[in-house]
Amino acid sequence: MAESRHLGDIILKIDHISLSFGGIKALVDISFQVRRGEFLAIIGPNGAGKSSMLNVINGVYHPQTGTVTYKGETRHHMPPHRAAELGIGRTFQNIALFKGMTVLDNIKTGRSLKIKPNFLMNAIWFGPARREELEHRRKVEEIIDFLRLEDIRRTPVGMLPYGLQKRVELGRALAAEPDLLLLDEPMAGMNIEEKQAMCRFALDVNDEFGTTVVLIEHDMGVVMDISDRVVVLDYGRKIADGTPDEVRQNPEVIKAYLGVGH
């Protein structure tokens, strides 16, 4: 599958990132690159620093050293709102939906940056305010259609089951039409059918919209099946980087996952 798709230039370049919290080294001298259109998985045991890596990419954490280059713009620290403006979308490991709002409103909020009229126009529901609300409603409905959320669009997300909440969160991230989508364990805690559905959605996003995807996942079967390339972290260090087959045979990876005989 990887061969059949055209991979573009480098969209994201991580250079010698180190991040520590007090004495704890979450990330140590990490470097890797992501190409446009690629489906990259980051794997590693618990506490390996996977989520920290995503948090560095979209600016939630500030690394002590190193730089992040995104679309040719090199930064030591990327503020989260700047990351959003530049087209980095994100879902969270622990669902971070807006619980009191409906599915529709959650996904609409994902598009907030694209909705231009200011509050004075909104206040009177006049001209551009009304026009844009309706236009964005149409786009949001496309996402609802894509993720099969039609029947629950008016339901407050707090009342939805876990699997659907994860799907709504993907929808919210997609609403911003991101170029780079960071998915933090989108399939954690799901049963096999839900996992399959979520894999399908992630692959479709990658295929149909050409969105670059960086995925964190624990399920090895899933990772090996759907990703173009795998980066393996262990105790904050990068221990492997390659195609699923290469990574599978890497002795370091086997050691990290299975332990080593004495």
Binding site: V60, E85, F98, M101, T109, R172
Partner: peptide, 27 residues
């Protein structure tokens, strides 16, 4: 009108989950 447009949604987003709101790009 305010609460059914972006203005109100941004407010509710901050109320419900401020980290996610920031990552979406809501100032």
């Amino acid at each position: 009108n305010l609460v059914r447009t972006r203005t109100g949604r941004d407010w509710m987003a901050i109320r419900d989950m401020d980290v996610a709101a920031e990552v979406i790009g809501i100032p």
